[in-house]
């Protein structure tokens, strides 16, 4: 079960190469994730950015092996913490989920079971992975609720989710994710459903906790502005692929892919005040009808006939990769 860490993935906590998650439906194959490669170091925060339908969420679920039927996961390499995830049995994967790799969902109103007390849901999460007493599990839950900034945690434990606000529920979901001190947390737009003030607080707290506990974080979002203040590195996703990845500062300073330019330009700043905000023309292509070659070429201002051919993912600088025929810093 415990495979020794191969040389290339030695420094990586998560090493994913060529991840494909395809849904075989009656209308055709939906390639929701089509060749994603991601690497995350211990304690690193990676921002996974892309618009709706780009496959970010499915990428997260694929890593957790929680893709619904008829989804199929395949990868050239899928290593986590020195183990090959593709060889894990269903039960080993279950033991991994929630202990080494946890996930936070988008909508806090739906993630907690409405018919069970907060207490029940926290304690069962601890007891699923360790044989500890209820009392010890409860103490750990209170401790974790305190850490995520919930006042009067002992009282919160005994209530049902519907007694709590959205922000409070999301904090509880985060506390649950942190309960077993995982090595990696996948956060799927956890602040999208919350108002801006709560968003800021939660963002700050999650970042702080991950730094403290040395937990790596994949923060999935469509909001580049939010994640650029949080992440060490960004990966920009489009139509099921990573089109550009680089350290955050490098993306902000010199993004190479036309899509990343578009995303950067659509962030409101003081300079754009009063002016019309930039908008990437068109919308994400249907996954059933993906353009040949570069999937972005139909919306790209740099597109040429060459883009019919599949672009190659190349490193332009250390740790900065782009998949584009016409890459370059914006003129």
């Amino acid at each position: 079960m415990q495979e020794s860490a191969g040389t290339p993935s030695g420094q990586w906590l998560l090493d994913v190469q060529g991840l494909c998650t395809w849904f075989h439906t009656r209308r055709g194959v939906v390639k929701a994730v089509d060749g994603v490669s991601l690497r995350v170091k211990q304690g690193e925060i990676l921002g996974l950015v892309g618009e709706s339908g780009s496959g970010k969420t499915i990428t997260g679920f694929s890593l957790m092996n929680l893709v619904d039927q008829p989804g199929r996961i395949r990868a050239d390499r899928l290593h986590f913490d020195g183990r090959d995830l593709q060889t894990l049995s269903a039960n080993d994967y279950r033991a991994l989920r929630g202990r080494d790799m946890a996930m936070i969902f988008q909508d806090p109103m739906m993630t907690l079971n409405p018919t069970l007390r907060v207490e029940t849901q926290m304690i069962e999460t601890v007891q699923a992975h360790e044989s500890v007493s209820r009392r010890a599990a409860r103490a750990r839950s209170i401790d974790m609720l305190t850490k995520v900034g919930i006042p009067a945690p002992a009282e919160r434990l005994t209530v049902y989710p519907h007694h709590l606000s959205g922000g409070m529920r999301q904090r509880i979901a985060i506390a649950i994710a942190l309960l077993n001190s995982p090595k990696l947390i996948i956060a799927d737009e956890p602040t999208t459903a919350l108002d801006v003030t709560i968003q800021g607080q939660i963002l700050y707290e999650v970042q702080k906790l991950c730094r403290e506990m040395g937990t790596a974080l994949i923060w999935i979002t469509h909001d580049l502005a939010i994640v650029s203040g949080l992440a060490d590195r960004l990966a920009v996703m489009y139509a099921g692929r990573i089109v550009e990845t680089a350290p955050t500062a490098e993306i902000v300073r010199g993004a190479q892919h036309a899509y990343t330019h578009g995303l950067m330009a659509s962030i409101p700043t003081f300079d754009t005040r009063g002016k019309k905000l930039f908008q990437i023309p068109g919308s994400t292509p249907s996954p059933l009808n993906m353009p040949k070659g570069c999937p972005f070429r139909t919306r790209c201002y740099r597109a040429t006939p060459q883009c019919i051919e599949e672009p190659v993912f190349e490193e332009v600088a250390p740790a900065h990769g782009v998949s584009c025929w016409h890459r370059g810093v914006e003129a």
């Binding site: 929680l66 991994l96 989920r97 699923a128």
Partner: peptide, 8 residues
């Protein structure tokens, strides 16, 4: 899904 993600 969240229950499964918690490894129950």
């Amino acid at each position: 899904k969240f229950a499964r993600a918690r490894g129950l």
